[in-house]
Design a protein around this nucleic acid. Structure first.
Lengths: 240, 240
DNA sequence: TGATTTCTTGACGTTTCGTCAAAAAATAAC
DNA sequence: GTTATTTTTTGACGAAACGTCAAGAAATCA
């Protein structure tokens, strides 16, 4: 790769870095192409060489963090333990991602809202979806193994797909709620992360995925996963 | 109220109607003030008499449907039956709302994304939050009664707040997923609404809220709620 | 009927997006 | 090492939309 090509690669990363920070700190409305160009030290035309439009840049930001999430999930898949402990490691990965990339939810929401926008290159949308699919595949594989081994006794009409969708929904809903004000005066839900962890356990208990959370303390598995798999990231995110 | 004032009121509703449809059909980017004015048959200046900005109009759209949701939830609270059947009625209300106001998720997401925008009048934001709070209050009251009566045996560290947050998250996450493409090839989750209903049952079973879904068929309660409480709406939404 | 207040209008200033022809830089050819 | 060609960068420009406001129209009041 020629030095020029390398420079272009690096610049794209820097553009994404700047856009990511701006999105988080100032919001979508203040994500201005001129300003990004100025901060990175290039002209606006050059930014448009990398990204076809403002929305395309936004999608690129989302795609980059989504790729990181998929990588975290796949790392979690290597966790050693019972099937449900391995799912707890995946949940830990979701937590780490959530803490490390607080901009991502907003970015992905906006990309989805810019629905079918012809201004977003199809490859980027495809990349984003592939990453989500990879996350689902990790979870599905673990649940399928649990079902095969008997740890997860699926009842009539239940499937590993249903379970994974439910767990995903639970997490997405909770992440969505993060920047929302509190709707409840109940102090028991002040700790959003703890509430989410407990609810995920209730949900998996509802499937009777053994060992139940009454039989085994999954916060131990969670901490082991954070230490063994995500040590650096978890420390950076303040989870350790 | 003078005829003029009535006219202004009506016009505001028409503006909201048009904005709502445009938002759903063409997306946020194509929600143009000039165009809305033109469709309703007034000038742009008049639109700005009603709404301080484009984002404020968006927030007004969200606030209006949120008020409808709160009303549906409160109607659901009047359902007769066991505590868990009454919660099933609330879930039915959420389904009805979801089907009737497909624009709402997007609108609320965008308002939240436009975070702290000084262009949205504080009263509208407050109205939006009050409506969500009303929904939570309905759910919380039912769960609290269930806990008091012994139907819902909360374990150490669990609370009705946690349960309501979890159920809300599950629904929000599922609604968020609606317009998303499918991530899974699993045909068992093709039926998004059915998957959501089953997952909600698993979740409440996880709390051991009696009668469990294995002991009682809650689709019966759901259909009764749709018929008794939301007959018109459910028919309009194609749920009956 | 005339005076006063309230409401409506659309042209205008501003901002930002995205384009593109010209200039600059990098690479290739000799 | 110099010239030619290709690639890359630039910033001025046109288009589009937001939000404003002074002038005019309509409604209410006296």
């Amino acid at each position: 790769m020629s030095p020029k090509q390398q420079e272009i690669r690096d610049r794209e990363e820097r553009l994404l870095d700047v856009a990511q920070v701006m999105l988080l700190e100032r919001g979508y409305e203040d994500l201005r192409m001129d300003r990004i160009a100025e901060v990175v030290g290039v002209s606006k035309g050059t930014v448009y060489q990398h990204f076809g439009s403002r929305d395309d840049l936004l999608a690129a930001v989302a795609a980059r963090s989504a790729a990181t999430r998929a990588a975290l999930f796949e790392r979690a898949a290597r966790f050693e333990g019972s099937s449900r402990e391995r799912m707890a490691a995946v949940e830990a990965a979701a937590e780490v991602f959530f803490a490390l990339f607080p901009h991502h939810e907003q970015a992905e929401r906006l990309v989805r809202a810019a629905h079918l926008s012809p201004k977003i290159s199809p490859e980027r949308v495809a990349a984003l979806e592939t990453c989500t699919q990879r996350c689902f595949e990790v979870a599905t594989r673990i649940a399928a193994e649990a079902a095969a081994s008997g740890d997860l006794p699926l009842r009539e009409g239940q499937s590993v797909g249903q379970l994974c969708v439910g767990l995903w929904n639970l997490y997405q809903g909770a992440f969505l709620m993060r920047d929302l004000e509190k709707f409840m005066s109940d102090p028991s839900v002040d700790d959003a992360l703890g509430t989410l962890q407990r609810n995920a356990r209730v949900f998996l208990d509802g499937f009777a995925w053994r060992p139940l959370s009454t039989e085994l303390d999954y916060s131990e598995a969670r901490e082991r996963a954070l230490n063994e798999l995500f040590s650096n990231e978890a420390q950076a995110a303040g989870l350790l």
